[in-house]
């Protein structure tokens, strides 16, 4: 197949998305207040304010945004949450990360945060599953649990004052990820939900939407012969490309949108490789506009 060459300006998916949603008259869900760097933030002088992240006070005493993002007010606290940033961990988040090294009694895990996260030997289930003191032998066998390069899913146990993150995998839901593919999207697009790991039954695919922007897509099951396995791998690639399409358009990513995009690709008979193309992305925006309108009606 010949190479498709285009200008870097062709790939302006954000404008495509914005134009598509505005044309359809879909609301932007609650219409949050966007501020840009240097924008003055209105405050009630009688009440006073607490300066939060993403804001600063200029010499004239006015409160201004120091990042582009969404303005949030919590009582007196004023915070600007940046639109695009490295992942900021919160306790209880489900994340997908890669083990980069083993140091002392802990694994260092890359979550694409500012600092490496740590998974302590005491925070994993060891074979046998018994809660017991970790011995020196366990420490020597750490590579038997997770090696360098392994992808794992885990939960954020604590975020310490200096920004470092502690993880744990003390549940059967977490742990080593096997055969599948990981992809990366902007972390702010992943909507925090009750459940982040999903089994897409009829597709034969398991999906983990890590809050840190790492998404794990893997075919599950097996033993039904090579044709079935190939179908599941194909489905996994389709789900992965659905996530990529949403990521490219900066649309929220959760089970509903991912399945929606997979649905329209199957309905329209779109090949997996065509799912990054302009035509399909326009179709996704159209679908998202429809979804938002439906929510407005409700």
């Amino acid at each position: 197949m010949a190479l498709l060459v285009e200008s870097t300006e062709t790939a302006d998916w954000l404008s495509l998305c914005h134009a598509g949603l505005s044309a359809a008259g879909a609301s932007h869900l609650g219409a949050p207040t966007f501020v840009c760097v240097g924008d003055a933030i209105e405050i009630d002088p009688a009440q006073g304010f607490l300066r939060g992240h993403g804001t600063h006070v200029d010499p004239n005493g006015a409160l201004r945004a120091s990042v582009c993002g969404v303005l949030q007010r919590i009582n007196k606290l004023v915070v600007v949450r940046p639109l695009k940033s490295r992942y900021i961990a919160e306790t209880g988040d489900v994340v997908v990360g890669r083990v980069t090294s083993i140091a002392g009694r802990r694994w260092k895990v890359d979550l694409h945060t500012r600092q490496r996260a740590e998974l302590s030997l005491a925070a994993v289930i060891l074979p046998g599953g018994i809660q017991r003191r970790r011995t020196a032998e366990d420490e020597l066998n750490m590579r038997g649990v997770f090696k360098e390069g392994d992808l794992i899913s885990a939960e954020v146990q604590a975020v310490r004052g200096d920004g470092s993150v502690n993880l744990h995998t003390r549940s059967a839901r977490y742990g080593l990820l096997g055969e599948g593919q990981a992809l990366r999207v902007v972390p702010n697009l992943i909507r925090r939900q009750r459940a982040h790991s999903h089994e897409l039954g009829e597709l034969g695919v398991s999906l983990i939407l890590g809050c840190n922007g790492m998404v794990w897509v893997a075919p599950v099951g097996g033993g039904e012969g090579e044709d079935e396995a190939a179908r599941r791998r194909g489905n996994a690639c389709r789900v992965a490309n659905a996530v990529r399409a949403l990521g490219r358009l900066c649309l929220p990513i959760f089970l509903g949108t991912v399945m929606g995009v997979v649905g329209i690709s199957v309905e329209g008979g779109v090949a997996v490789r065509e799912m990054g193309g302009q035509a399909f992305l326009e179709r996704v925006v159209e679908w998202e506009a429809g979804r938002r309108k439906e929510m407005d009606v409700d």
Partner: peptide, 18 residues
């Protein structure tokens, strides 16, 4: 199986922006 993680075939290039 002739499929790649992003749906390309083995001899397909990604879209090139120049």
């Amino acid at each position: 199986g002739g499929l790649r993680g992003d749906g390309r075939g083995c001899l397909d290039h990604r879209v090139t922006r120049l």
